[in-house]
Structure formats: C-alpha cells, structure tokens
Design a protein around this nucleic acid. Structure first.
Lengths: 214, 214
DNA sequence: AACGTGATTTCTGTATTCAGAATATCGGGC
DNA sequence: GCCCGATATTCTGAATACAGAAATCACGTT
C-alpha cells in the first residue's frame, strides 16, 4: 500500500508535470518558473529539477542553456511525424510478441472493443479505453527497451491527441480498425496485424488539422 | 568556440559517466558511490545526480528505490534484443529519409567504406568509422524524435559491442553489407536498403556469444 | 562456536543556500 | 518624446547541508 516510501519523489513530480503539460496548465511556449512550480507541487527545487531533466530527455520539455526549461511549441509538423512513429514502434512490439501469448489476449481485447462501442460519446473515457487496449495488445512483447521507448514517446503525442480529438467519427473508425487488427491476430497473420496497427495510428494523424470536436 | 558556457554541466557529466560504463571503469553490477564519483569528476553531487537520472531514463543505469544507482548487469538476452531494435529504428529512419537527400550522400558514404577497408586491423578506429557511417546514412532523416531515440539507444548496445567485437571477420562482412546498402540506395530501392540495414544489425548480434578478438 | 540483535557508520534522497547570468526597470541624454 | 545605457531584480545552475534508511560490524547470548 505504502508506495510512497519506495517510489522516488521525482517519479511523482514527473507525472504531475506531464499532466500539467497535457492538460494545458503548463501551456505551449511557457517558461517554467522552478520556484513557483516547486511551491505549487509542495516539493523543493532539487527533485523538481530531476523530474524536469527526465522530461527534457524524453522530449516533453526543452532546456535552453542559461534560460531554464520551457514547454516546446505545438507544431503540426511534429505531430504528423509522431503518429507514424508511435505506430511503427507499436507495430514492432506486436511483431516481436509471442503469437501464442497474443492468442491468449484476444478475448479480453474483444471485450474492450465492446466497451469502447458502448462509450462512443464519452471522449475522455474513450481515450482511456483506447490507451488500455493498446497497452494490453503490447503486453506480450518481451522487449523491455522497446516498451520503455514506447511508454516515453506516447505522452509527446498526447499533447496533440487532446487538442485534436476527432469526435465520434474518428472513434467509430478507430474501433473498426481495432476489430480488424484483432481478426488478423486470430488468423495468425501477425504481419497484417502489424500493418493495420501502423495504419490505425497514421489515420489518427489525419484528423490533426481539424479543430476539436464535431 | 566557447561551448562550455552554454552547455549544462550535466551534459558533460552524462557523457563521462557513459564513457566509464562503456569502458568498464564502472563495471556491470557496480553500485555508484555518488560522493566518490563526484569527487573524481570534480563536480558536486547535484549535477552528477541530474546526469545519473538522465542515464537511468535511457536505460544505461538502473535506480533502485532506496539504494541508489547501479550499472545494470550484462545480459546476453538483452543484447540479442538490442541489436534488432537498433536495426529496426535505423531502418525506419532510412525509410523516412528523402530519397534525393540520400542520393546526395552516396559519394561520401562510399569514401567512408573505402576508409574502413583500409582500417581493417584497427578495431577501435573501425568502430568509430562504422558509427560515423551509420550517422551519415541517417543524417537525411528529418524525424527529430526518432533520431533522438536512436542516439539514446545506441550507447546501450555499445556495452556489448565493445566486449564482443567479432574481429576482422565480422568487420569484412559488415563492410560488404554497407556496400550492398549503398547499392540499394543508388538503385532507388529504399525498401531493400532498409531491409539490408536491419540485417546488418541482426548479423552483428550473431557474434555475441563469442569472446572478444579473433 | 554460531547466531541473533543492536549500535554505528555510510550512503541516498531531499532541502536550503549561494553565485552568476539574463532580463526588466529606471534615469539620463539626444 | 524616444532611444540608449546603467542598475536592480529575478531566475537558473551549482554547491552545501541535513535527515532518514540501509548495510555493516561488534557484542552478547545460547
């Protein structure tokens, strides 16, 4: 229960800062005032800075030599590159999963798809379910480094995902793509599944230009 | 010229610690004594810790909750997964390069291959040349995040590369593979080039079990 | 003699402090 | 009235200090 004693403080802080970047409390282009942020989070500057260094290394923040940390600008071009990147990374993880382990996942994956169909109008819940579906899909991949890279890359994309969610149209389409991926896995056709998975992410990028909602 | 004033201290430190891990001054399994290491590097603990956090995030070190930082054990299984991972990442970067930019690189790439042929007996120089060749090959890829991931992942692999270098046999083979990749690029066949690039890394892993040297 | 227990010491994790650079402000000159 | 420069303030980057946890070692007990 008492995870606080075992988890370093910087882990918590990194998560909280990530949350603030994703939900806009730390907006794009904003310079980070370390003392103020430390005060808000009720921690001192040292573990905060360790967390900021971590996030900078992952690309969620940028460090300017003598000017501190900043939230990088939102950049459509970057987003259009991030979606395929995550897609290819996940696709790789899928190809490197043991086929028999994947078959064992098909039933829970199918149930999650049903849950998503039932939550079509709840954008936030849908995004959460989508995340979980992908996480479950990749849970059979034994390549720890690849999984770490994926986990560290996805938050970069979430900045754009939140802003440009495509509404029920994209959701419906994405759910159908999930179903196709699942079918390919059941067919034992990992290559097809991997291709469809990339496509699922690439299609997500297609909704980027449009303002949020319907 | 004066880059020292603009580069954060932790950058230097991270590089020095990386070097120590790669050349064995910080051996596998070793716990890191922060005060001693800080003294050796003539810096204080704060920037040192920031560098250690960075390297931990990249997987070059591990952090055990209340016990500090450690150099992770060498693990053949991990190495066998790292080679294909780097291969796939580089392959992706190659596929995402602009073909015309790649064509502009073919001549310098060819010259580097000649240099490598001339340095067949100099293991250290050869490794350096190999690194530069791959760096040049990927210099046309505009996906900054992918390039960052690659740069951060390669050092993990270098731990094994140093230990298990396969000698002139592997070198000769690798050089021929480079030549084939170059040919594929000149043919405008990026897919073949990307496939060969993966294979180049996968073949590197084949030498893993064998002790260093001839 | 071996094992368990407690004190001591070492080391990490976090907080606070200090120095130097960048930026903003205010005053003077044109 | 506007621009330029000196001064003051703010903020980062680095060093030091402190508290708490873990490992080690010695001592006493069985």
């Amino acid at each position: 229960m008492d995870q606080t004693t075992t988890a370093p403080l910087r882990r918590d802080i990194a998560e909280q800062v990530t949350a603030r970047v994703l939900d806009g409390r730390l907006p794009a282009e904003a310079r980070i005032n370390e003392v103020r942020l430390a005060a808000e989070l009720k921690v001192s500057r040292t573990p905060l800075r360790e967390a900021l260094v971590e996030l900078t290394d992952r690309g969620l923040l940028v460090a300017e030599p003598r000017r501190g940390f900043r939230v990088p600008p939102l950049n459509l071009d970057e987003a259009r590159k991030l979606y395929p990147l995550v897609g290819e990374l996940e696709s790789l993880a899928l190809r490197w999963s043991a086929p028999q382990d994947l078959l064992g996942l098909t039933d829970p994956l199918e149930r999650q798809i049903d849950d998503m169909r039932a939550a079509l109008d709840d954008e936030r819940g849908l995004a959460e379910l989508d995340d979980r579906w992908h996480a479950m899909l990749l849970s059979a991949c034994g390549n720890a480094h690849l999984m770490r890279i994926i986990a560290q890359t996805k938050p970069l994309l979430k900045r754009y995902d939140v802003l440009y969610f495509g509404g029920p149209e994209r959701a419906r389409r994405s759910i159908e793509e999930h179903r196709d991926i699942l079918t390919a896995i059941r067919d034992g056709d990992l290559n097809r599944a991997a291709r469809l998975l990339v496509q699922n992410w690439v299609n997500g990028a297609a909704y980027l230009g449009r303002p949020a909602g319907r």
